[in-house]
Design a protein around this nucleic acid. Structure first.
Length: 472
RNA sequence: GGCGGGUUGGCGGAGAGGUUACGCACCGGAUUGCAAAUCCGUGAAGACCGGUUCGAUUCCGGUACCCGCCUCCA
């Protein structure tokens, strides 16, 4: 049995992972608020959990893992988007969920077993809020229901803060109806312009945090194994989830292991709209950066370290994936991944370490393939990007007969070369070769002859023109 | 102000208290009409200051710098 170790944010230590039930390992990832395309940062926790789920499948069996990732489809940002565009909320959320699926599929991420939408769990949220009120952990006032943080002594433990310190920081919203400035909303009133549901506290809608508490309980129970998301969710979102769930179900432990990934940067800076370096997964895909190349870059930095997305990394990843793709062409995967790769992933999801092992498997393409697939790379059918240009789509048409062009070009070049070798005048040949090289074609000349290889940046159109110039 | 993360060779990026990370780049050799590709090989590190230790880049403390969170942003 592979020994999985994970760094648990709750204890701040790397621990041996021990599922509550090896027949049903349960994990929950906080999913997106669905009002716009997923940005690149949104992809990181998805890929971290994807690798984790693949590992758990490997160790405990596909049928013994339950993976839940929610869609937050009730939110003031969505309301704002609806107001701006005049579109119905459901249209916006449905469309965004479709996009999300498309984009995460393109990254090779497995669909979770359950993808609950918050709006389908309003009844469970109301039930949980009622429990919290009954137990003295929440109170309703002026149509709002608030969680009373002072009623939960452990509040702040997950994120390593104390209520008093945070209040001293004084960034909390001061509302007159709050008993304590840190109290957070479980339910709030809605008006005609905002979506709402009938509740014991009037027509209204849930606060952000309660949905994850309600949905994780409904689908995974009051105790489950792993909960995660970006480190920015540690506070307040996850802290508040802990408070809600543990107070509503003192008999449960909620999540045993908390997994948080560090944030994403772009060229050394925080990704933000104001800096102009904000982009979505779809933006990259549309630019021709393949999903598995994005994935490779993401996995080449450990999840607990800040990940810096750079153009240089994307290019290097593309070259590596190209090379691997050529190596495993027409190769059947080995029956099992390399134990070394599994071990690296089992060691707190050390994907950079796993990739280092993959580099060493180049002599064994079948094992390389099986091992790469273990972390979601070189997946079957994901090689379509090799037929597209990376950055210069417009200069490269999709020539159906490009392989034939290459074959003709090769034999014509061979003739020219033979002449050159006879006449000792290589000027023309060298000129042709450098032109082809500049067009992104790899030209290998050996005693055996000339071989031409298409590369990730080959400009097919240019190559075809050059071939025509010399009558190939 | 509070909390947390980071600082490794030219670049990217890991593990491990003592033995080659790995990739890219570079350099040398084989090979080549010249190259490319391939193969072989060399060199190169752990912000700074202390401490623990026979020995630390790896543990502990401090300093500097960078970054994130504390604002329903992953």
């Amino acid at each position: 049995m592979v020994a999985i170790r994970l760094t648990n944010t709750r204890t701040r230590q790397k621990e041996a992972f021990q599922p509550l039930d090896t027949q049903n390992v349960r994990l929950y990832l906080c999913g997106p608020t669905v009002y716009e395309r997923a940005h690149l940062g949104n992809a990181r926790p998805v890929l971290v959990f994807d690798v984790l789920v693949r590992l758990l499948h490997h160790v405990y069996g596909d049928a013994h893992v339950t993976y839940v990732r929610n869609f937050t489809d009730v939110d003031d940002k969505i309301n704002a988007r609806a107001a701006e565009t005049g579109r119905p909320i459901r249209d916006i959320t449905d469309e965004t969920i479709g996009w999300y699926h498309d984009d995460m599929d393109a990254l090779g991420a497995l669909r979770p077993d359950h993808e609950p939408r918050a709006t389908d769990y309003i009844a469970q949220m109301i039930t949980m809020i009622e429990q919290l009120i009954r137990r003295g952990n929440a109170y309703d006032v002026e149509g709002h229901v608030l969680f009373d943080v002072r009623s939960f002594p452990q509040y702040g433990r997950l994120s390593g803060r104390s209520v008093d310190d945070m209040i001293a920081g004084a960034r909390v919203e001061v509302a007159p109806y709050k008993r304590d400035p840190m109290d957070f909303v479980l339910w709030k009133p809605s008006d005609d312009t905002t979506p709402g549901w009938d509740s014991p506290w009037g027509y209204g809608r849930p606060g952000w945090h309660i949905e994850c508490s309600a949905m994780s309980e409904a689908l995974l129970g009051a105790s489950f194994d792993i909960h995660g998301g970006g480190i920015d969710l540690q506070f307040p979102h996850h802290e508040n989830e802990v408070a809600q769930s543990c107070c509503a179900h003192p008999e449960g432990s909620f999540a045993n292991v908390w997994l948080h990934n560090e944030m994403l940067q772009v060229e050394g800076k925080k990704m933000s709209k104001s800096l102009g370096n904000f982009f979505t997964v779809r933006d990259l895909l549309d630019r021709g950066v393949a999903g598995e190349v994005i994935r490779f870059v993401m996995l080449s930095t450990h999840y607990r370290k800040p990940m810096d997305w750079t153009e240089a990394k994307a290019n290097e990843a593309r070259d590596t994936m190209w090379q691997w793709r050529l190596l495993v062409k027409d190769v059947e995967p080995a029956p099992a991944p390399s134990p070394e790769v599994v071990e690296a992933v089992a060691n707190d999801l050390n994907t950079p370490g796993a990739i280092a092992v993959l580099h060493k498997l180049k002599d064994d393409p079948a094992l390389l393939l099986a091992s790469a697939r273990f972390i979601g790379l070189l997946l079957d059918g994901d090689d379509g990007w090799m037929r597209q240009d990376f950055e210069v789509l417009d200069e490269r048409a999709d020539y159906q007969g490009f392989d034939e062009v290459l074959a003709r070009l090769q034999s014509r070049l061979t003739e020219i070369r033979l002449q050159a070798m006879a006449s000792k005048d290589f000027a023309e040949l060298d000129r042709l070769k450098s032109a082809l090289t500049e067009a992104g074609l790899e030209v290998r000349m050996s005693k055996a002859g000339i071989e031409l290889f298409e590369g990730p940046a080959t400009l097919q159109k240019r190559v075809v023109e050059l071939a025509g110039d010399i009558g190939a």
